[in-house]
Design a protein around this nucleic acid. Structure first.
Lengths: 212, 212, 212, 212
DNA sequence: CATGAATGAGAGTTCATTCAT
DNA sequence: AATGAATGAACTCTCATTCAT
């Protein structure tokens, strides 16, 4: 009855949550949103169905919750890079775009399944049943990253690393390239079992670097 | 379920089919594959559920039938452009990429909903609910376009319009840019109600042209 | 417009009916009642679905109509045999039971599918949707055969061919043996692809002959 | 669909299962396999449709689960009798056939509906609606009983209780007599409301005993 | 007479969600 | 906090039957 002080309750709760998260991520990745059942997630997480509902209001919330860490990871990298740019530690556009490319790759590597969920979310499917609050939470986080990106671009233009341009348009192009390559290469990987994501993304950013 | 009795009961097959197509497109666009029911499609098309199955073997077939025209439209444009390239009617890389950009825009304009369905498909979220045969059919058609694109790129490189490069990688970059921009701009348009797709895509292809 | 006198209308009608009958019989035999669709029957008969409904009120009636000829065939054989018994042309119980056995076999051979339909009907399944009138028609015909059988048995007992016994019970035993063997041997034939119906039925009737 | 709220929501698994079994048996008996719906079964059992699927994988499994106990009951009786025969405790053919007859009657009494379901199955009318695996499971169990019967007959012949004969044929005759009488008497009972099954079956086996 | 497009009720089955324990 | 039996709405798909032509 007395909770083991070496294993505080909130810790156990966090562990449970992480286990469910992990189970959900793997299954959603392999079988997609519709193809994954709450029962499967519960089983893989080693808990009962009811317990999953103790941690997540419903399937949508669980799905969505998987993308927050990715957005936060991306935000962390962007901020670090922002500080580097502000400190004039980025010599030229080549290094600049290289860095962006590596941030994208690291974000992807951090959680490929989560990344795909972000894309599905951006595509706007299945989420009619999602609570407005959840959608707003996600959008707020995404907007923050977006703003950070534009701030970095502004700084780079002020410093002459990049030619002066519309920062909105440029950040759109960079993000589009990222998600476009991720989508295409994942799609190809699903049938060919070969993963060319890194090479293609790097090649793409090289072309962009030359063009900017 | 109950169709409007004021409508004539019998219609030209092509008309019925078009009505079902239109209804399906709109619904799949808004609610996604899994989120759309055959009953909804039937109701919106003004026919009974059974009638939908008279025209399409199952939900999969109906879904794929919506992307095929888009893939075919894209294929037509690519072939026309391919003949132009073969006839040396494309002077330089700027004109070349302009043309690709216009093909993308025209394909998108031909059927934006269909285009989005292609993306949702490429993202792979319905896979478990779709027969392997259906998936294969689409992939075959997509592969054809893919090959055509690479052939065009090869020709352009032989003619010195483009620097010699890996055609697989380059066609991936071009397609990724396209779908990335479409996804991002549609996502933004959904909340801001402003459509910047054309400008962003053209800007993106300009950068690419400069970089190649 | 003027009907061809060499091919009178009622003849054509009978042919159509026979074609539908034949198609239905084959399909019901192979795929069972529930497994056969009206569309399949129509297609095999070379007519449209609507036409089948011109000749048969519904699927049940069509199914049921297939057993009438069998009951009539059985009735014809019984009457012929009855006249033979009345004319003292059957010497002993062995010959008597031999004759019954051959009647059964000939009835079965006349239309095995129809025979099976009779059994399904007797088993009482699926016919909740059948019109009382149809059921009554069948039962009337069956009752006639039943009465004929008992009359024959009475006559045979009066003539000392068979020991005096309860005719109801005896006719039940004979019919039970017949349908029991048919059911078992068909069931076995379905998996072993070997047809031992004749041998088994003859052996069974020999045993019965010895026991009576 | 909606269960009686006055009933306790949770029940012992075995009780629930028995309730569903009972409901299914009654309905399959009256309306046949195809004529019975899962919804009807659920309603009669006082549970929701989903609950039925909690206990049985599908309609097939539920159906077969109803015959298995009967086949097993028959198997038990046969084995007991087999041991008696092996121990020379059966004096003559009359006692032998009496015993078989009583086994049949007891098996029938154990579950008349289940017995009828076996017959419907043997008649083969649901085959297209039933998975090959399900069919095989039943056939395997039936084959076991069949083999036991033949072993018993062989032993009886070795002991001179029965005249030497083809055991396959003889077991077929005995089983045919049983199912034939069951089918006929049930059919008659349905209209006359008089049950002569026992008498008819005993009379039939007496005749067979005399004939063997 | 004949057609076959259209119907629509209803089948089996799944699964997110609830709630008594 | 955790369970999992139970729910029931919703799904895809079938098919006997009708009826305008």
């Amino acid at each position: 009855m007395t909770p083991d002080p070496s294993k505080p309750r909130f810790k156990a709760k966090a562990v449970r949550l992480a286990e469910i998260h992990a189970a959900a991520r793997e299954l959603f990745f392999v079988k997609g949103f519709a193809g994954t059942t709450m029962a499967q997630i519960a089983q893989r997480a080693g808990v009962s169905k009811g317990t999953v509902y103790l941690y997540f209001k419903n399937k949508d919330e669980l799905y969505i919750s998987l993308m927050m860490p990715v957005l936060e990871e991306l935000g962390r990298h962007l901020e670090i890079f922002g500080r580097k740019v502000a400190a004039r530690q980025v010599p030229d556009k080549r290094a600049f775009l290289d860095a962006i490319c590596e941030i994208d790759l690291r974000t992807y590597a951090f959680d490929p399944d989560g990344m795909r969920i972000i894309q599905a979310f951006q595509l706007g499917n299945h989420f009619s049943a999602m609570s407005a609050e959840t959608i707003a939470t996600i959008n707020r986080r995404a907007a923050t990253n977006y703003r950070t990106t534009r701030d970095i671009l502004s700084q780079a233009m002020r410093d002459g690393i990049l030619k002066t341009r519309d920062t909105v348009q440029l950040s759109d192009i960079l993000w589009s390239m990222f998600i476009g390559v991720v989508q295409l290469e994942e799609s190809k990987a699903r049938t060919t079992r070969k993963d060319h994501l890194k090479e293609t993304l790097r090649a793409a950013f090289e072309v962009l670097a030359d063009g900017l």
